[in-house]
């Protein structure tokens, strides 16, 4: 398994008391798989994704990335692994507004990226249909173009896994299908994809579909 978790729980303290976002979640992602976790808003999908990505320490349970317990690592080592092995795609794109498309992608590169990163970023952006948009700012792009830029950023370091949080939540069906198509191509090239979404489009591309409700993964039906 490339990425797995076992008995993962995460509680948040609020003024109203403790809230359980995810509880006793176990899953395993095989290399080259495309997994879709579906569920209503607020069911804990994003929390699960962030915990799997090493960005949110769980209250209980373990996350293993290529056999390494992510939360047993030092913060610096966890950051290094995250940068090298995991790519993130978010619903709101989270592009840096003052950088152009190419620079946003290169932001993922270590120490400024270098010539290799520049060549790969340019290739990725051309493959994603943004070859003529390299010097444009995010504010000059459509929503679909922004998400493809974010996808190129996620893929720059040749990650083992891409974790996508509602990647098509702000896109029309055509653009959504295009984004999933690119993720599917990444999968076919040997990558692993986990998408959390409350939409239906991802089902067409997923080889594993899981349902989540009230912080728990529901048994497969």
């Amino acid at each position: 398994m490339i990425l797995s978790c076992s008995q993962l729980s995460r509680k948040f303290r609020t003024r109203q008391g403790s809230v359980t976002a995810i509880e006793d979640v176990s899953l395993a992602l095989a290399k080259g798989s495309f997994t879709c976790v579906r569920g209503p808003s607020g069911c804990g999908k994003t929390t699960l994704l962030l915990a799997l990505g090493g960005m949110l320490r769980p209250s209980n349970g373990r996350v293993l990335l290529e056999e390494a317990d992510l939360y047993a690592l030092s913060p610096a080592e966890r950051s290094r692994r995250r940068a090298g092995r995991i790519g993130f795609v978010f619903q709101m794109f989270h592009l840096v507004p003052y950088l152009n498309v190419l620079e946003n992608v290169l932001l993922a590169g270590a120490n400024g990226g270098g010539e290799d990163a520049l060549a790969r970023a340019t290739t990725l952006l051309r493959e994603l249909g943004l070859g003529d948009r390299l010097r444009h700012r995010p504010s000059q792009l459509s929503a679909g173009e922004r998400q493809r830029t974010a996808l190129a950023r996620a893929l720059l370091n040749r990650p083992a896994v891409v974790l996508a949080d509602e990647p098509t939540g702000n896109l029309d069906p055509d653009n959504a299908r295009e984004v999933f198509g690119h993720l599917d191509r990444f999968r076919r090239d040997g990558g692993t994809v986990l998408v959390v979404t409350h939409g239906d489009t991802a089902r067409e591309f997923a080889d594993q579909e899981l349902h989540m409700d009230k912080g728990r993964l529901l048994p497969k039906t």
């Binding site: 913060p75 993130f88 989270h94 993922a108």
Partner: peptide, 14 residues
């Protein structure tokens, strides 16, 4: 805030 979050998600340290 979102930029900081992305930088951290991209593995940039404190």
């Amino acid at each position: 805030r979102s930029e900081i979050g992305v930088l951290r998600a991209l593995g940039k340290g404190a």
